[in-house]
Design a protein around this nucleic acid. Structure first.
Lengths: 156, 156
DNA sequence: ATTGAAAGACCTTGGCG
DNA sequence: CGCCAAGGTCTTTCAAT
């Protein structure tokens, strides 16, 4: 899926701008990269069609919607039967409190970032979702003091 | 920052829609939440002004831009002098390969998600950035097999 | 707060360098 | 590939409720 794509410097510039601010107008982007509006529009359409641009998502202030606490869960799973693990990952990824899920090598099998109202809420999720499933051997919890996301595309 | 905000069901609906797809037009959102275009526009403007909506970011297919490998780094830092740690976190967060940084409690002090071209690139970042700084005691690396992000706002 | 209407800006397509 | 131009659509403001 999505391979044969040679992107030139202009494509990267467009991707970079949109990754930083997906609400830029086509006109603004065109001006920034030195293209006519129609040419820029064509490129963006093409980037979408080729699966390079996957979509855009608004960033919401979690505190403002009552999610004042972030945590990272390190989950160890039992002997993996592929289907069971995949199911657990899928249902985990769709919990409203869950922000991201990583299936990884190493000490833990799953790394789950969550945003919750408070400690009680965190405890509830761990005991009601994670500790309830047989696949889960152990959950280690880290509280997030601070977090930053990078919204930039490395230059070609 | 950003506290005194009571959001009603309509606000949450708008946030939910924009978190899923920031490229929805105002007109489409208005129709979905059952408001006139002008009212919806006003609400979105207000959500932005109040710092509830922080912005929007395009999602780029990392593989398509040559970043075929994702990894998570667990970093242990030495006795923390606040200024030094903050500086290290800041410069780490702006490395082009870095996607997110979490400052956490527990076994590790820093959790860093990176996207890189290949193993050599991963090795280079770890040895040239992390292992070169005195603050860093140890880095443990996990390769990401699969990852998912949730773009949904929990209902009020 | 919400609305409809109006003006202007923008997107989007098609034909041509 | 990129540009211009034109038509259609959307955003954005404002007076009124």
């Amino acid at each position: 899926m999505a391979a044969a794509t040679d992107l030139d410097r202009t494509d990267f510039a467009i991707l970079h701008l949109l990754a930083k601010d997906a609400w830029l107008s086509n006109k603004q982007i065109a001006a920034s990269v030195g293209l006519a509006a129609s040419s820029c529009h064509e490129r963006i359409k093409s980037l979408r069609a080729r699966g390079v641009l996957l979509g855009a998502h608004a960033e919401v202030n979690l505190e403002a919607i009552g999610l004042a606490l972030e945590a990272v869960l390190f989950v160890q799973l039992g002997k993996l039967e592929i289907g069971v693990v995949d199911d657990f990952v899928s249902t985990t990824a769709t919990l409203p409190e869950v922000r991201s899920v990583f299936l990884v090598s190493g000490r833990s099998d799953l790394i789950v970032a969550v945003a919750v109202r408070d400690m009680q809420h965190l405890k509830a999720i761990i005991s009601e979702h994670f500790n309830r499933h047989d696949v889960v051997l152990r959950v280690e919890t880290s509280v997030v003091f601070d977090s930053r996301q990078q919204h930039a595309i490395p230059a070609p």
